[in-house]
Simulated assay, not measured.
Amino acid sequence: MTDLSAFAITRRWSPRTPGAIQLYSLPTPNGVKVAIALEEMGLPYDAHLVNFATNDQMSPEFLSLNPNNKIPAIIDPEGPNGAPLALFESGAILIYLAEKSGKLMPTANRYEVLQWLMFQMGGIGPMFGQLGYFHTFAGKEIEDPRPKERYRAETERLLKVLDGALSGRDWIAGDYSIADIAIAPWLRTLRDFYKATEITGWDKLKNVPSYLDRFLARPAVQRGLVQPPRP
């Protein structure tokens, strides 16, 4: 087993499985992306809970791995050229894992996959997240309607873009890929956690609802959605 003791984070979250990828995460829409990818790819991993309720993400150990204090983050004991690799940002991790495993990044349409991955990273994630803040969390107490309407309208627009792109295909880039793993957890959060479907035109969509159902039916997705287990 590669010695990971040089990584300060391992002093708080100890590796359990020799040679396994160490995942530091929480089952949020960004956090589950990497767990789902690892399950789909069949890569061994240890899932360590970064508990926001106790501010684990602000601990010196976690900040030593990700100074931006966001989940997920990983350490791969067997990174490029056999050396350990530490990595944060879910999109970057998905690309790395796809290249490492040779799975979920079709060669023929690699750039289409990356295009939709960036669509999620730059659009769906930030806009849905802001809508969640103003619709579900503390932002709903703000009387000025303009912030919520801005993100509601943009979320509705992004859903229409996605719905049109899914016409005639099961997955966003043709074959199932890391782009779907990035996008679908945010759709689930919008529908089930933010409960924002009524204000974003969900019922008018022709393809997105069945796309999400198809994604959630995958056994590897079901396993990844609960990793690491919440306390």
Rank of each mutant, 00 (worst) to 15 (best):
T2A: 14
L4K: 06
R11W: 01
R12W: 01
S14T: 14
P15D: 09
G19A: 08
A20C: 10
L23R: 00
Y24Q: 05
L26N: 03
T28P: 06
P29C: 07
P29S: 12
P29Q: 08
N30G: 10
K33H: 09
K33N: 11
E40R: 10
Y45K: 00
A47I: 01
A47M: 02
A47C: 09
V50D: 04
N55D: 15
D56V: 05
Q57S: 09
P60R: 04
E61V: 04
E61L: 10
F62T: 03
L63R: 14
L65Y: 03
L65G: 04
N66L: 08
N66A: 09
P72Q: 05
A73Q: 01
I74P: 01
E78L: 11
G79K: 03
G79L: 01
N81E: 15
G82H: 07
A83W: 00
A86F: 01
E89H: 05
S90H: 06
G91H: 04
A98Q: 04
E99N: 12
S101I: 03
K103R: 15
M105G: 03
P106I: 03
T107G: 00
T107Q: 15
A108L: 13
R110L: 04
Y111E: 12
Y111K: 00
Y111R: 12
V113A: 00
F119D: 08
I124M: 14
G125Y: 01
P126I: 03
F128V: 08
L131G: 13
L131I: 13
F137A: 14
G139E: 09
K140V: 10
E141R: 15
I142F: 09
E143C: 02
P145C: 12
P147S: 12
P147A: 09
K148G: 06
R150Y: 13
R150H: 13
Y151V: 05
R152E: 09
E154V: 02
T155S: 15
R157T: 10
R157V: 11
K160W: 05
L162F: 02
D163L: 08
G164I: 02
A165F: 02
A165T: 10
L166P: 03
L166R: 12
G168I: 11
D170L: 07
D170K: 09
D170Y: 00
W171K: 08
D175M: 06
S177K: 06
S177I: 07
D180F: 09
D180Q: 11
I181K: 03
A182L: 08
P185F: 01
W186V: 03
W186R: 05
W186E: 02
R188M: 12
D192M: 07
D192L: 11
K195L: 13
T197A: 09
E198N: 13
D203P: 00
D203Y: 10
K204N: 15
K204M: 11
N207T: 13
N207V: 06
D213K: 12
L216E: 12
V221C: 07
R223K: 15
G224A: 12
V226N: 13
